[in-house]
Design a protein around this nucleic acid. Structure first.
Length: 280
DNA sequence: CGACTCTCCTGCTGGC
DNA sequence: TGCCAGCAGGAGAGTC
């Protein structure tokens, strides 16, 4: 389930492999996973998906990626739960969940980029310009990778909801999903059920630091591969071996040894340590 | 308006 | 061994 570290791992792999290449052809095999931005309804899908253009950049905000062409057109990629991007030499064996295929060409090489998403929680959105992408991304909170104590205080202190629910809300903080919410809360020693308006200054300091540390470490390990995540070149992440709590209910806390507890918070499975993360 | 709930979708797991 | 209910969850729509 791609969160910020997995998205960043993918972004780096794409930046290495497809920037500078030209989109020879964009083939949509399932149209319902592609959305055209407001006012773009008349544009042909392949054109909206950068056919004929050269890829200039690959951006990320939170969990979302965006491929930008030299003309300024943008394809935003939301990976959802099971979305992935795959680079192949040829479009040889397509899976039935391969929804969009881009044929790419540079001076001396050819490649294929495939958007695959079995569960179809993900999807692509086409924007006519960078500023339209920026508008969409302004609706999200600050990027979690670099979030500061001040930013965290600003978005959370006036709200009243469990801290875990706040961390999962992309409009407040962009990039944290269920795995890294639990990991960050454990590292900061905060109970997932603490209400945001009960947090003290010291809590914001600890939590902001924990989020940055957990995400940086996960990026360093190329993300977590729970079932199927791998980067576009097929490299799997290995941060799952370092998880403190996610997927470890009943196992001993790596800090104090007491068995980790599992609960539902914000409709999500939540694992935490009753000792290290006691309610204040 | 803000917080909460529901819904989409299908691969995998576990129980019988 | 085979079948099937239940679970997983990001994001947006809908409800209170």
């Amino acid at each position: 389930m791609p969160e910020l570290p997995e998205a960043e791992t993918i972004r780096r792999a794409l930046a290495r492999s497809i920037v500078g290449m030209r989109v020879v052809r964009a083939v949509v095999r399932r149209t319902d996973i592609v959305t055209l931005a407001e006012g773009e309804r008349r544009v042909r899908l392949p054109v909206a998906l950068l056919e004929g253009e050269t890829i200039e950049n690959v951006l990320r905000h939170g969990k979302q990626l965006a491929v930008v062409s030299q003309s300024g057109r943008v394809v935003r990629i939301c990976l959802g739960m099971t979305g992935s991007l795959i680079i192949q030499d040829h479009a040889t064996s397509l899976d039935r969940h391969d929804h969009v295929v881009w044929a790419l060409k540079a001076r001396d090489q050819k490649a294929c980029l495939v958007f695959r998403d079995p569960r179809r929680f993900g999807g692509l959105t086409c924007f006519p310009s960078r500023s339209d992408l920026n508008d969409a991304w302004r609706a999200l909170g600050p990027d979690a990778r670099t979030i500061s104590t001040g930013q965290l205080h600003l978005v959370l202190s006036e709200r009243r909801m469990p801290i875990k629910a706040a961390l999962l809300n992309q409009r407040l903080i962009a990039g944290v999903g269920n795995i890294y919410a639990d990991e960050s809360l454990h590292l900061s020693g905060l109970n997932p059920g603490i209400m945001t308006n009960d947090l003290q200054r010291e809590h914001f300091v600890k939590l902001a630091r924990a989020i940055r540390m957990v995400l940086a470490s996960a990026i360093g390990h190329h993300g977590s591969t729970i079932r199927s995540f791998s980067d576009p070149a097929g490299i799997k992440g290995n941060y799952q071996d370092r998880h403190r709590v996610y997927g470890r209910a009943g196992l001993p806390c790596r800090r104090c040894g007491s068995p980790l507890l599992q609960d539902m918070v914000a409709q999500r499975t939540t694992v935490y340590c009753g000792e290290c993360q006691a309610m204040p």
